[in-house]
Amino acid sequence: MNDASITATPPALQVSNLHITIERAAAAPLTAVEGVSFRVGAGEVLAIVGESGSGKSLTAMALPGLHQHPVRISHGSVRLEGVELIGQPESALRRVRGSRIAIVLQDPLTALNPVLRVETHLVETIRAHRAIDREAARSLAMAALARAGIPEPARRLRAWPHELSGGLRQRVVIAMALVNEPAVIVADEATTALDVTVQSEILREVERLARGTRTAFVWITHDFSVVDRIADTVCVMYAGQVVEQGPATEVLAHPAHPYTRALLECIPIRQQPGHRLHQIAGSPPLIGAWPAGCRFAPRCPRAVDVCRRDPPRLSTPDGMTDSHAVRCHDPVRA
C-alpha cells in the first residue's frame, strides 16, 4: 500500500470514521459502531473479525446503505471506487448495489428465494442493472456459476434452491454477487454455516477470484483461521470499535491488543497438542452499555487503573509496523 496509488486510482472501498447508531423511541440513540476506518484495494481481502455484538455485521450492512429504521449511519464516509455513498438517495444506492458492491449473507439456506429458480435469481440481478435481453442474461448467469466453481452450470441454472446442497447454494449466492463484476463483495459470515471441507473449498475459490478478477473482498468473520487463510489485511472489532488493524501477517504474528491475542489463543490448531485452550473470561458488553475507559478493560488480564479510566486511542506504538495500529494503553510487545 503506497501513497502514490491513492492519487492514481482510488481504492475499491474506503471507509472513514464510520458511526452507526440505533434510534430509540423515548431515549437517546445508542452508538453501536464508532469510528471505523479501513480501505481495501482491488484484488485484496480485508477481514473484519469480532464476536457477535461487536458491530461487524452492522458495519457490513452499512457499506451498501442497507440499514433500515431504527439503525442509521450517523457520521462518516463510505467511498466506493472514489464515489461517496453516504447521503446518496435510495435510487442511486440501488444502482450501485448488486452491480458495484455485492453482499453474501451468512445462511445460504435462506438467502435464496425458495419459489424462484437459480436462473431467475441471477437473471433478475443482471437485468436490474443492465438493459440486455433474457438470453444474453442467461449466458452471463451461466458464466457466473462456472466462475463460482459450480459444475454443470447449465443444469444448475434450472434447479430450485431446495434441490441444491448447502455448499452449492452458497456458491450460487457468490455467483449472484459476482454476476455483475462488482468492485467489492462483502461477505458476512459467508462460510460459517457450512461444513469445514466445503468452507475450505469456498475460501480457496474466493482467494482465486480476488486474485483473478481483481475483486475486493470484505470478509466478516468471527474465526481467525479464516483470516489466516485468505486475508491481506485485518480489522479486529470489539464493542463497536476497531481495537487492532493492520496487515494480516503482521497482526497474526505479533498481535498487539490483549483481545486479539486472546482470540488467537482460542484457535485449536495454533496451539501445541496437550496445551489447554484459552477462553476469554466474562462476556462482551451490550450495545450502548459500554464500560468507561477501555471497553475491553473488564475482561482484560493486563488492565490497570488507567485502562478503567481513560479510553485509549487507535495508534501505532513505537517499534510496530506503520500500517499496524492498536487501541490499547499497554500493547503487547512481541
Binding site: 451498501p64 442497507l66 440501488r94 444502482r95 450501485v96 448495489r97 448488486g98 452491480s99 455485492a102 453482499i103 449473507l105 451468512q106 445462511d107 435462506t110 438467502a111 435464496l112 428465494n113 425458495p114 424462484l116 431467475t120 433478475e124 440481478t125 436490474a128 442493472h129 449466492v173 449472484m176
Partner: peptide, 21 residues
C-alpha cells in the same frame, strides 16, 4: 427473511422485490 434482504442488496427495484420475493 434473508432472501428479501439479499434481494435488496442486489439492487432490485421495490416493485420487483414486492412481486418476485
Amino acid at each position: 427473511l434473508d432472501h428479501v434482504r439479499q434481494a435488496r442488496a442486489r439492487g432490485l427495484s421495490p416493485a420487483r422485490i414486492l412481486w418476485a420475493h
